[in-house]
């Protein structure tokens, strides 16, 4: 069991207490390709933040690769994020004044990997994602799809246990969205990478093998989606 969530509760207290996660139980096996689907306000972003050790939870237990992720210091949390989790964001979150290859190198920089070594690794990953020629370019010189692929390379470079993607296609057109989802699907199939995608688009969720529905802070239905036919728009259709 790679990820084990046991009765996770989270309440935000900004003047008025807001109970966002109301006892979430969820298990994800190694090598799974899962999507978490829900409307905005359903608590899916909060769940992703907790999975990504970006946020804390109030009660319950979260095991990642057998380690209990609870009451970590900021430094420990940073270390776990760096080694175990690769992030892909809706808005790419590349650093604008760094080139593609420098962006990909950054997680290794924080691991203390020597410059030459991490440059080689970053170039390898860019090459794999077909961006070798774009290594020296800055994010604002690239298309959305290219930027997202740079972000994926950055997420992969530390060989994390899981990839967390937060609306990875949210800022992309439908064709590029299909490309990116296919890329994630390939990574899951060929590299056995565990990938969790948070989305509100059924078309995106349909690409994944398992769809976890979250509604009002609790896990609802969990669909097995091996045949990829759960989308009302049919297979391969990502509706924008």
């Amino acid at each position: 069991m790679l990820i084990q969530l046991e009765d996770i509760n989270k309440t935000y207290d900004n003047g008025q207490p807001l109970h966002v996660l109301k006892g979430v139980n969820l298990s994800i096996e190694e090598g799974e390709f899962v999507s978490i689907m829900g409307a905005s306000g359903s608590g899916k972003s909060t769940l992703l933040n907790i999975l990504g050790i970006l946020d804390t939870y109030d009660s319950g237990n979260y095991y990642l690769g057998g380690t209990l992720i609870k009451d970590l210091s900021e430094t420990q949390a940073a270390d776990y994020r760096n080694r175990m989790i690769g992030f892909i964001f809706q808005s790419y979150n590349l650093i604008g004044f760094k080139t593609a290859v420098e962006n990909v190198e950054l997680p290794l920089f924080y691991q203390g990997v020597p410059r030459r070594r991490r440059h080689e690794m970053a170039m390898d990953y860019l090459d794999k994602l077909g961006l070798k020629d774009w290594a020296g370019h800055y994010p604002n010189e690239m298309s959305g799809g290219q930027k997202q692929r740079v972000a994926i390379a950055r997420a992969l470079i530390t060989k994390p246990k899981i990839i967390l993607a937060d609306e990875p296609t949210g800022a992309l057109d439908s064709k590029t969205s299909v490309d990116i989802m296919n890329l994630l699907s390939t990574l899951n199939r060929e590299e056995k990478m565990t990938i969790i995608v948070v989305t509100h688009e059924s078309g995106v969720a349909n690409v994944t093998n398992k769809i976890v529905h979250i509604r009002d802070g609790v896990i609802g239905e969990i669909e097995q989606n091996i045949r990829h036919d759960s989308s009302p728009f049919g297979a391969d259709g990502i509706m924008k």
Binding site: T75, A78, R81, F87, N93, I95, L106, Y110
Partner: peptide, 16 residues
């Protein structure tokens, strides 16, 4: 803020 947040997300410790 965003840049520092990204750095933190991908593994920079507060002391860094």
């Amino acid at each position: 803020t965003t840049e520092i947040g990204i750095r933190r997300a991908i593994g920079a410790t507060p002391s860094m």
